[in-house]
């Protein structure tokens, strides 16, 4: 197996994730797209860890998984807060502060 195939898969997921966060306006959907990006990073980390035979890659990936879980939890809490106050999770309508 070539290393680059994993890396390219990861970059595809990363860019799809970027497309997702830019193209979705529902808050929960944006959070899903963020998961795509973080998973792309994990593929990278594990692939590099395997290549360099360094356990740190996997450890790093585990940390990312743990923190991604925390992040998504916090993100959902904020989205729920927004929903409670505005009855909508449409991110494009949230622009009361600007300039």
């Amino acid at each position: 197996m070539l290393l680059v195939q994993f890396l390219l898969l990861s970059s595809v997921l990363f860019c799809i994730g970027i497309y997702g966060v830019l193209a979705r306006k529902n808050g929960v959907m944006v959070l899903m797209s963020i998961e795509l990006i973080l998973n792309a990073v994990n593929i990278n980390l594990v692939a590099f860890g395997t290549m360099t035979n360094n356990i740190a890659g996997e450890v790093f990936a585990l940390f990312v998984i743990a923190i991604a879980a925390a992040e998504v939890g916090v993100g959902l809490a904020i989205v729920l807060l927004i929903f409670r106050n505005r009855s909508s999770v449409d991110l494009s309508s949230i622009d009361s502060m600007k300039g």
């Binding site: 994730g17 963020i34 792309a40 990278n44 590099f48 360099t52 360094n54 740190a56 890659g57």
Partner: peptide
């Protein structure tokens, strides 16, 4: 996320964290 991706690349090239 951007920073993590960069870190993964640096880890990949250098083999160390």
């Amino acid at each position: 996320a951007i920073m993590l991706y960069g870190m993964s690349l640096i880890f990949g090239v250098s083999g160390s964290t």
